[in-house]
Design a protein around this nucleic acid. Structure first.
Lengths: 206, 206
DNA sequence: AAGCGTATAGTCCACGTGGACTAATCGAAC
DNA sequence: GTTCGATTAGTCCACGTGGACTATACGCTT
């Protein structure tokens, strides 16, 4: 019931993801998330971020590491990610990645999919791909029935758009799954700069 | 500040839209919305629907028309749409239709676009089309900068999907706008069954 | 006729959201 | 040198959400 993973919000996952890159205080998270345009994925306001940080701490997913002070500025509480926090993000991604309802959650999960093993990511995305195909089918059925019943087309514009976007997403998935599966597609921990340099040279030769 | 249109939620709009088809009690709205799969667009639970109906009434957008009782079942309060309610839906659609942030609101607005004049709908959708193109451009820039800086592709999967969906939506818009503008595309109040019959014969001849 | 599941109709409440607000400090212009 | 705006850092609260819960009635089985 009080499973901490189930209670994670998209913003909570984003905060945990930030802290996996290093300790930080809430205000710095807000600036960094805005700089990275994370507000594409979650709405970032002071209210929610501070509140979310408080919840994550009470859940034991992050912990205070000290109150520091810069000049005469207000003191800032810095947080760090706990082992439970790191595990919770991965578990949350595993839960949300295959789902086709909850598009907002899926986008955040996809943005954090790099934390999973390549094989696991592919498998979960494949489940989602099939679920997408199924919901496309049922939406097509719904459109067909509506047209048969003589529902005027002006009432079906939103369904038409939904069909177009579903088909586009299927096309994208069928393109991206083989791409990820390709061993040439980088996966795993971020390469060091020198590894990145070698990878670039390799890519340039081809 | 306390503009009733600004305070409308997607579910509120959906409720108002239902009431434009006839008076109804909340429980019937819930059943009808589930039957029509309106839960694709808004989450429908008892809690939110009853609460939303209460808010709409306090805002003067709907009004009680009587408490009726069916057999020995609990009594039901039936609501009707006020003129202010009908106007509020249209105003809300005008506000949300051109926006590219808030995808959930846009879907509901698109589902109710049939209430607007054809020309107005086209104009608002055109504004959105251009805004979509602009945000596609800036996302492409963001992707370009990330690739230049050597960010590994595994971290850019979500952006890749977003680009694919944005492009698909632009394609859809560029197809649907001329379609709507075509005088052969039905618009305005729902045709009567006989008009619908004539339209079907006309369509069949072509 | 007793039991049981489902449909009907609605209430209640814990919680997350996000906008408004506070307050101090720094830099720049006048 | 003081006024003004922007930045830093965080608090507060009204409100909407959605899941849990209540209670009666209907229909079906045993």
């Amino acid at each position: 019931m009080t499973d901490p993973v189930a209670r994670l919000t998209p913003l909570g996952v984003a905060v945990l993801a930030l802290l996996s890159e290093g300790d930080m205080h809430p205000y710095e998270m807000i600036r960094l998330m805005h700089f990275r345009r994370d507000d594409r994925l979650v709405t970032i306001t002071n209210g929610t971020v501070y509140h979310t940080v408080g919840r994550l701490e009470r859940a034991g997913l992050i912990a205070e590491v000290g109150v520091d002070r810069d000049g005469n500025r207000p003191e800032r509480t810095t947080y760090t990610q706990t082992d439970a926090g790191a595990a919770a993000v991965l578990e949350w991604v595993r839960r949300e990645l295959p789902r086709v309802d909850r598009p907002a959650e899926f986008r955040v999960a996809l943005a954090e999919v790099h934390g999973l093993d390549r094989d696991e990511a592919i498998e979960l995305l494949h489940v989602r791909r099939d679920a997408l195909a199924a919901s496309l089918g049922s939406l097509e059925d719904g459109q067909g029935h509506a047209l048969e019943k003589g529902v005027p087309a002006q009432y079906l514009i939103e369904i038409d758009r939904e069909l177009a976007l579903l088909r586009a997403e299927l096309v994208w998935m069928d393109a991206v799954l083989p791409r990820i599966a390709d061993p040439d597609f980088a996966w795993g921990p971020t390469p060091t700069p020198s590894e990145r340099y070698l990878a670039q040279r390799k890519a340039a030769r081809q």
